[in-house]
Design a protein around this nucleic acid. Structure first.
Length: 466
RNA sequence: UCCCCGAUAGCUCAAUUGGUAGAGCGAGUGGCUGUUAACCACUAGGUUGCUGGUUCGAGUCCAGCUCGGGGAGCCA
């Protein structure tokens, strides 16, 4: 009598006639007056639950089995048999069912056996993993995370654990969360009246990281191929279905590489992880296709098969001007692309993922490499239909004199970047990298419209429950 | 942060011009059936988000607040 996971039983990996133990949670109970009840038991190992047949000869049939409701936890012992009914190949003919945990008040159990809106389920985020959708999202998320590590491992990348706490606002972009042990009610002051950070834990202002890029560049200059994959924080007051205050970002960085190598990596990498998803989570993807996004699987297959369109920023501007569309925001060389522009390019103009390259330098950060034309930098954005910007990256400026000039142009103080500048003093090499939003990667794959529904416990402005 | 929309039973939503609060699902009880979005009948379930205002009377009108959704900005 060995414990069996539902996925193994349903996949036919357990011989019919075996005595098995199944442990999990009840999804539904249906009673038949033929003298038996049908229970579906879910253990999260795959999308489908397994059906358990409970005959009324069980000792606890009248007083317990007939009181089972959705959400109860059970341990079922019985024989794995071929199902007599339609809808499933195998089921468990129970010889005993132990109710491990009852549902306190079935009338108010938040996850009733019915459809719920995602907005409602966010309010019960501790229970939503019990639903079909959030179970599927969790398995897809895990599958993609493992595929990320597998891709990099197989291609010789080292995973670098860049710090979560950082002492400098290195990118100069994005509001940061402060990290402090100072008493907010009684802040230490300098003689001038400013907050005296010398008294703080790190002896200086500290923040949660908005990117591991600058740190990971240090390891790139020794290990050649590196990446980060971890939580990232932005204190922006963004209220959209595409933004979180805490999200996970993947940032590869490659040495002896230029922007084209970078784009090649982005394309190869994305295709790899989505191919893995289609192969390993076909059950969950079938659900997303059926209930969430009718083209979910086809879209990923097309994504894998077609090559990414590569387009110069200048050509993108020309294409937008010639589109005949009336955009709300003006199209002009030197201006950044707005969401409406990006959507036109990827959804209408090329109808597949597009890599826009070489943007005007005045709209991009200081660390991006200046091109020979003197007015653009080697930046790239990967735009995907339906989701917009999924990757932002660049070749990095490896020339110290040009870097210094860019820091000065941007109006940043050079002192905090002394170690970043050192990389350019000691054996500098051309290198490049990008940042991929992990949640957006999941959104694109599943069709989940709101980013808050692809992370277990979303952190957004005014929301840190759970 | 800006613009628009919303908040009524456990959940999803109704409620004419301001006039006694309704349904479906879920839950409970009974019936029926190797069932599987089960089906049929009955029952229970409400300080209409909060605070104030207008009115004989407010779910409905007005103001403020809180929370949620969509769009925009910022970006991944």
């Amino acid at each position: 009598m060995s414990q069996v996971m539902v996925v193994d039983a349903l996949a036919g990996r357990v011989p019919v006639g075996s005595q098995v133990t199944v442990k999990g949670w009840i999804r539904t109970r249906r009673d038949s007056k033929a003298g038996l009840s049908f229970l579906t038991v879910h253990d999260g190992s795959c999308f489908d639950p397994i059906q358990v047949v409970a005959p009324n000869t069980l000792a606890n049939y009248e007083d317990e089995i007939l009181r089972i409701t959705a959400g109860c936890s059970v341990i079922v012992q019985g024989e794995l048999v071929e199902s007599q009914g339609k809808g499933q190949a195998f089921e468990v003919q129970a010889s005993s069912i132990e109710i491990v945990g009852w549902v306190d008040d079935p009338d108010t159990y938040p996850i009733a056996a019915k459809r719920h809106t995602f907005e409602y389920l966010r309010e019960v985020a501790h229970l939503r993993p019990r639903t079909n959708t959030f179970g599927a999202v969790a398995r897809v998320r895990h599958c993609l995370a493992m595929a990320v590590h597998r891709y990099f491992d197989e291609h010789g990348f080292a995973w670098i654990h860049t710090p979560i706490i950082t002492a400098s606002d290195c990118e100069g972009a994005g509001e940061m969360f402060g990290v402090s042990t100072l008493d907010l009610v009684n802040l230490p002051r300098t003689e001038e009246g400013a907050i005296d950070y010398a008294e703080d834990f790190f002896g200086r202002p500290a923040y949660l990281t908005v990117s591991g890029q600058l740190d990971v560049e240090c390891y790139c200059q020794s290990l050649t191929k590196v990446y980060t994959f971890g939580p990232t924080f932005r204190a922006e007051n963004s209220n959209t279905p595409r933004h979180l205050a805490e999200f996970w970002m993947i940032e590869p960085e490659i040495a002896f590489a230029d922007l084209n190598d970078n784009a090649d990596l982005a394309e190869d990498f994305l295709k790899f992880i989505y191919r893995a998803l289609l192969e390993e989570r076909s059950d969950d993807m079938a659900f997303f296709e059926k209930r969430i996004e009718p083209d979910a699987i086809k879209r990923l297959e097309m994504f894998i098969e077609s090559s990414f369109e590569r387009m110069e920023y200048g050509d993108a501007i020309e294409a937008l001007k010639k589109s005949g569309k009336s955009f709300e925001f003006p199209v002009e060389w030197g201006r950044d692309l707005q969401t409406e522009h990006e959507r036109y390019l990827t959804e209408e103009y090329v109808k597949r993922p597009v890599v826009v390259m070489n943007y005007p330098k005045q709209i991009k950060p200081f660390y991006m490499r200046c091109n020979d034309d003197g007015r653009t930098v080697a930046a790239m954005d990967v735009l995907a239909p339906g989701i917009g910007e999924i990757i932002g990256g660049s070749q990095r400026e490896e020339r110290l004199d040009v870097l210094d000039q860019r820091i000065a142009e941007t109006g940043l103080p050079p002192e905090p970047y002394w170690w970043y500048r050192d990389l350019r003093r000691y054996g500098t090499v051309p290198h490049a990298g990008f940042g991929l939003g992990f949640e957006r990667t999941i959104q694109y794959a599943t069709g989940m419209a709101n980013i808050r529904d692809v992370i277990p416990f979303p952190r957004t402005p005014k929301n840190a429950e759970f």
